[in-house]
Write a protein that binds this DNA or RNA. Sequence first.
DNA 1: CATGATATAGGATTAATAACCTCTTTTTTT
DNA 2: AAAAAAAGAGGTTATTAATCCTATATCATG
Lengths: 208, 208
Amino acid sequence: MLSHADVWRGVDRLAEVNGLSPSGLARRAGLDPTTFNKSKRNTRDGRPRWPSTESLAKILDATQTTLGEFVSLVQPGTSVAARATIPCVRLSAAAVSQFDGAGFPQASFERIELSHLDARHLYALEIDRDDYAPVYRNGDTVLISPGVGVRRHDRVALMPKGGELRLGVLQRRTAERLTLMGLKDPEEVSAFAPADVSWLARIVWVSQ
Amino acid sequence: MLSHADVWRGVDRLAEVNGLSPSGLARRAGLDPTTFNKSKRNTRDGRPRWPSTESLAKILDATQTTLGEFVSLVQPGTSVAARATIPCVRLSAAAVSQFDGAGFPQASFERIELSHLDARHLYALEIDRDDYAPVYRNGDTVLISPGVGVRRHDRVALMPKGGELRLGVLQRRTAERLTLMGLKDPEEVSAFAPADVSWLARIVWVSQ
DNA sequence: CATGATATAGGATTAATAACCTCTTTTTTT
DNA sequence: AAAAAAAGAGGTTATTAATCCTATATCATG
């Protein structure tokens, strides 16, 4: 449910990311500087006041912001895509009768949210060799999120200080040592001294 | 620039995907049925009339639609998430100096869009066995998009009419025969008669 | 510290959208 | 085919956001 508070949060954040006050934002958009005053967001009898869609369009234009970008400012927390939910089917429970002719689930399944898709905290790593096939093939793109916590058995990217980027499965991480297992072969272990590691980050998505 | 026409397109599409007319949508949201009449979208002297933000909030609530989802209806074309871009690094070009202390790319790289993330056309398949390890491990979640085109070498899900869901790499697809290679071993080929296949759909993302 | 500019609270007025209403057209149901 | 319901055009009234205005508070600059 899109709330009054959501919309105003979006307006305030839009001002903030553009280094403006609410009144500065209004002014930039050619609106009256008092338009977005906090004091005017509810009427005297407490009824919420909503900024008009036309005013919103003007502030988006004045700050070169797309509506999609505005939505991520509206939401408290993560990005747009993180809010979308999709049906979820379990592999071993998947049966013909549960899908329609086009292959889409038609019964009511559990739904999951798409998480870790905040574009501000993601980057893509394009796989351009076959070192990591068949897990990651030449041409696959993996998404790495440096801010996300890393645990044992997570698939990770590790940047050594003196070498080249490595992908693997985190085996262990202590004060003295950090070990990765191979993506295709768990027996293939690589060890690193923490002081030689520039950073370690989790692979959160793979695009195929 | 968010335009008046964009917003009205969103309203019309929201009605349409919910099997409603504009007046039916207004009615469902508790608004007057004539609220969204085409005849009222411009004033007599040709000035554009914008629906209020409060009215939009009401129709989103009445149809259980998020603002993020509404944005994809507003845009002529693809979804919101498809609009987000993220930096992209090539594996063999990745060097320590290109990342900041937290592991985020700091030079200006090529940017790519996140594509195939339209929640309306996606579902998740949760891997709950190790049949497909190390490519897909128990606990991984793959996203399948039934509407997306499938080409040779794509990783796919195939639902046989009389069997259980299979994952593999599309090898060949003719009028007489459809063959999949194993995810981990390309030599492991499975053949299907097209008449025995309920549907074939591409795996577009993997969550790890 | 003084001055000027900006931000914000809050009141009054104006402009614009929602709500209400009537009628016509289109679609659906019987 | 006829009747009922829904959709849509368009006019009027009520409500609400924008605009204009004044005053106070806060911030930036010399």
